[in-house]
């Protein structure tokens, strides 16, 4: 791989990382609005308010960047970057087509799980360094939630890797067959639920519950740093949707896959993202004890069952 190719790949990945979350954000505005019988943003940019998020970004840039006097300055300032960058690293290795990928990694599935789990440190740092009790409560809720839901994610990814016989994301798509939709269904449900919890999206948004703890760990943030946390949430949706697509929905497989492979991946990913948005509109927020109960009483046993099922399937097929 030449130096030029490396630069081009890095740039394209960066542009994708910056544009895809905006598309998901705009989709959320519109999908939520229509589900709730309203219009959503309509003026910015002319056509159905397409430039709303760009305008929001400009607004965030103009705002004053406030660091609370009692805060731990360095940790407080670093936290948004720690929350955002892991998703950028994760998106580098998720393939959109057989050869359309930022970087080929041998153990891609493990890579994405490992790196995406680092983002939580940003929330913890933000919550502790803000010197605000609401922030601290929010960060503690995030940590408790993340510790519980990391396990179902790892187990369901392990199940898919077991079924495909490889940890490489390209290899998993290569081995995928439509039967997996049924065979891996429990794992897929577990993964999607746990991914929602990991992203702290409703109904798992206890850590940022606005009616109880203002905005959780992000309470003290303003301007661009606050925008980075929001961007991290949407980038997280993009990463998890594409990861789900590649693991469970066969990535670029579909009619005319040779020509339209990338389009298929993006379409399926967008569909998953819409489902994630749909959850936000459809379900009320879960209480902390319900949340822990769901993880340990339902998701972990189901994921373990899925691993066993996959093991049996792999041995029988051989």
């Amino acid at each position: 791989m030449s130096a030029l190719e490396v630069v081009v790949r890095a740039l394209v990945t960066l542009v994708g990382f910056l544009v895809l979350p905006l598309i998901v954000g705009q989709t959320e505005h519109k999908v939520m609005a229509h589900m709730q019988g309203r219009l959503g943003p309509m003026y910015a940019g002319g056509f159905h308010g397409w430039a709303q998020l760009v305008a929001d970004g400009v607004k965030f840039v103009q705002k004053e960047d406030v660091t609370p006097a009692a805060a731990d300055r360095w940790v407080f300032r670093l936290a948004p970057a720690v929350a955002l960058i892991p998703y950028l690293v994760a998106i580098c290795v998720i393939p959109l087509g057989p050869h359309v990928v930022g970087a080929q990694v041998d153990a891609g599935a493990l890579f994405v799980v490992a790196v995406a789990g680092v983002g939580i440190l940003g929330t913890l740092m933000a919550g502790w360094a803000s010197a605000n009790k609401y922030s601290l409560l929010g960060a503690m809720r995030s940590a408790a939630q993340l510790l519980s839901y990391e396990l179902p994610i790892v187990l369901s990814v392990a199940s898919v890797a077991l079924a495909a016989g490889t940890l490489s994301l390209g290899g998993i798509v290569g081995q995928w067959s439509p039967w997996w939709l049924l065979w891996q269904l429990p794992g897929a449900v577990c993964f999607l639920t746990a991914a929602l919890a990991e992203l702290q999206r409703p109904p798992f948004d206890m850590p940022v519950a606005d009616s109880e703890i203002v905005f959780g760990a992000y309470t003290e943030y303003t301007g661009l740093r606050f925008a980075f946390f929001l961007l991290a949430e949407y980038a997280g949706i993009v990463v998890m949707s594409l990861f789900f697509t590649v693991l469970f929905l066969g990535g670029w497989r579909g009619p005319f896959a040779d020509q339209l492979g990338v389009v298929w991946t993006l379409l399926k990913g967008l569909l998953v993202a819409v489902v994630i948005i749909w959850f936000r509109v459809a379900w009320p927020r879960m209480r902390e004890d319900q949340l822990q109960r769901l993880a340990w009483v339902w998701l972990v046993p189901i994921a373990l069952f899925q691993v066993a099922l996959t093991g049996v399937g792999v041995v029988v097929r051989r």
């Binding site: 799980v113 490992a114 789990g117 680092v118 939580i120 940590a143 510790l147």
Partner: peptide, 14 residues
Amino acid sequence: VLIYVGAVVVLVLF
């Protein structure tokens, strides 16, 4: 990264 950074240190911070 998965075990130590993602889980153990998060547990320590918690």
